[in-house]
Design a protein around this nucleic acid. Structure first.
Ligand SMILES: [Mn+2]
Ligand SMILES: [Mn+2]
Ligand SMILES: [Mn+2]
Ligand SMILES: [Mn+2]
Lengths: 222, 222
DNA sequence: ATATTTTTTTAGTATAATCTAAATCACTAT
DNA sequence: ATAGTGATTTAGATTATACTAAAAAAATAT
């Protein structure tokens, strides 16, 4: 694995996520938006990442991630998610407070550290947002899951993850009781704007916009 | 407190240590040696640190640390030592493995993180090398201590800290059973080279060079 | 098929942290 | 008092990451 700088690691992770794990091509503008840097800066970085052979770069046509790149990205993601577990399980952070800190901690370079952290945490399989934690070889146990807004009326399931890890969104979910593991059922869908009426844990009903529902990921059971 | 870069934090910490907590003047060459950078690079950095008012810099005459600088340095040292405790107490690192990792972790910027880490660890007062951990206000409880080579024959005490935290030195101490807390007594001193014969825990006798003894810090009891 | 718009790259600049080589200052020893 | 030595600073270059402005390529619309 090539050694990557802090900035290179952040770009590579963004490419991995934007390409949906390497499946799609990623454009300069998409990366620019994601990284909050100008397209010119992205072009520059793509040249560097391409020289380190973690991406395939065809000028003007965007990038795909290489096998090597995928491995590197997955190790960074592994570290990010393990640190998030640590912060929530051990340091009593709430799930909306961990992202930015993990964004820094993920760059600490020490294989022994991450292996022992993993053991200390009891080798967790999912992070506080329900995302799977890659193992030391980069293998990910993906659970089948789909956005809540894609369920039909009367469909039910369990919340297994969230797409958006921003503090604002997670605090809203806390407020309405939509934690990970909650059982939900779609009671009604409004044709006009796609908003939903949801039954949570067979107790509370709750209305949410299509936008919100699109960021809640469900493991369907019926 | 001014915001400092990663490199600036490392220089400031080195200045704090080389000046013995702000007591002495530090020269460009001393810093150059400590930081493993060229004197020219040090001069450059001193200008920057001086602009941020964490040091007093008189060209050609070295630097002293300001009150602001001392506060910043102590916060970095606090983080470094708390992380070292975490690594040893929670992640089962040995005391010779923690320094380099803590050197990275100390730069993570999150007040809430360090406060909660402190609580999680039970607000420890000393790090694995016996060094005191500054509190959130930068107050340090210094224990009186002196290098083992300065004891007289028949003087006794307890090992409370080590000056050198290098893996090589610490592994040597492990091998001879000179851990922190061990009770020692000076049985003999060789006039010629200053080497010592030591009784450890009233059990084992052990010979060590003046150089080694100078890096072991003792709380004297007799 | 051509013109317009959008996307992307290139060129040139800036800041941070490092280096080497050259210049300058301070201290020491005659 | 001055020459020499060593320490320190300055000048100029390099690498990494970012920026703005301009040029070029690709995509879209007429
Ligand atoms: Mn990051
Ligand atoms: Mn997460
Ligand atoms: Mn450091
Ligand atoms: Mn220590």
């Amino acid at each position: 694995m090539p050694s990557l700088t802090y900035a290179e690691e952040n770009y590579l992770k963004a490419i991995y996520h934007l390409s949906d794990g390497g499946k799609n091509n990623v454009s300069t503008n998409d990366l620019s938006k994601e990284m909050k840097t100008k397209p010119a800066s992205v072009s520059d970085m793509l040249r560097k990442l391409s020289e380190k052979e973690v991406i395939n770069y065809r000028k003007y046509y965007g990038v795909t991630i290489t096998e090597e790149g995928k491995k590197s990205a997955l190790q960074i993601i592994r570290k990010h998610r393990l640190w998030e577990v640590f912060l929530v399980e051990k340091l009593m952070f709430s799930w909306d407070e961990v992202h930015d800190v993990a964004e820094e901690l993920e760059h600490i370079k020490s294989p022994i550290l991450i292996q022992r952290l993993d053991d200390f945490l009891g080798n967790p399989k999912y992070d506080p947002h329900g995302d799977p934690i890659p193992d030391e070889f980069g293998d990910v146990k993906a659970r089948p899951r789909l956005p809540l807004n894609e369920l039909m009326v009367n469909d039910g399931g369990q919340i297994v993850a969230v797409k958006d890890s921003s503090a604002a969104f997670l605090r809203y979910l806390d407020k309405v009781g939509a934690y990970i593991g909650a059982r939900i059922k779609v009671l009604d869908k409004v044709e006009f704007d796609g908003s939903l009426e949801i039954l949570v844990d067979n107790k509370k009903t709750l209305f949410m916009s299509k936008d919100v529902a699109g960021n809640i990921l469900i493991m369907q059971t019926s």
